[in-house]
């Protein structure tokens, strides 16, 4: 019994690290994803090109490789980052790219009549985006965003390469130490639990936009 208590305690600490990174990365990436998508919509073709290249790199290479490059590669050119910062930057860069693509699709799916109506009614561009377009975009993109958010929870397990004690790493350490697969089973259960709760929450969020069509 004591064994399980200490095990759960260790895994709990790991889960906290996982959750901490998940929440931070999630918020930062959603914010920058939205920003990049709007930038891509309103700016000139040069900036659009840069954004396209950025998205291509982020989606075209494995996140693990990106993380390794930032944490182990950057010190070679004299830029060493702490583990936490390296993880945050790598994940935020990667997830912002995905989110920005989702938001871009959302913006592009909005009927141009909405923009035109706002224009004819003398609304300012800023208000048009904030009050007319964005609420409709959010409704459209929520299912894809939810998917991506759930993937993010699981992707945080990649953090183990830099040696931070997130959930999967704590499980592995315990598993090696005890020569048992039980810790990993528990790890799986904890992920499942987190994602179950998150799914409920996201569904509720989606439903809160169900009042219009």
């Amino acid at each position: 019994m004591d064994y399980y208590l200490t095990l759960i305690n260790q895994l709990f600490l790991g889960a906290l690290v996982t959750l901490k990174f998940f929440i931070l990365i999630g918020i930062v990436s959603l914010f920058f994803g939205l920003l990049v998508s709007i930038l891509g919509l309103v700016s000139n073709s040069f900036i659009k090109r840069i954004i396209n290249i950025y998205v291509l790199i982020m989606r075209g290479t494995p996140l693990l490789l990106q993380l390794i490059t930032i944490y182990f590669g950057l010190p070679i050119i004299g830029l060493s980052l702490s583990r936490t910062v390296a993880v945050l930057i790598a994940f935020a860069l990667n997830y912002s790219a995905y989110f920005s693509e989702i938001f871009r699709g959302g913006f592009e799916s909005i009927d141009k009549g909405q923009f035109e109506a706002a224009f004819v009614l003398g609304m300012k561009k800023r208000d048009t985006y904030k009050k007319i377009v964005l609420p409709q975009v959010i409704k459209r993109v929520l299912p894809s965003i939810s998917n991506e958010i759930i993937t993010l929870v699981k992707d945080t397990s990649l953090i183990y390469v830099v040696g931070l004690g997130e959930l999967l790493r704590m499980g592995k350490i315990a598993s090696n130490r005890d020569a048992s697969l039980v810790p990993l089973l528990f790890v799986g259960l904890i992920y499942l639990l987190i994602i179950y709760a998150l799914t409920k929450l996201l569904k509720r969020w989606e439903r809160s936009y169900g009042y219009f069509e």
Binding site: Q114, A117, V120, G122, M123, Q136, Y211, F212
Partner: peptide, 26 residues
């Protein structure tokens, strides 16, 4: 253009706003 109003063929009401809010926002 403030002197000109347009009623679109397919109206282009704002779907996420009530009838009241559709006008109140202007």
């Amino acid at each position: 253009l403030n002197d000109v109003g347009l009623v679109f063929q397919d109206f282009n009401l704002f779907p996420h706003l009530t009838v009241y809010e559709n006008i109140r926002i202007i």
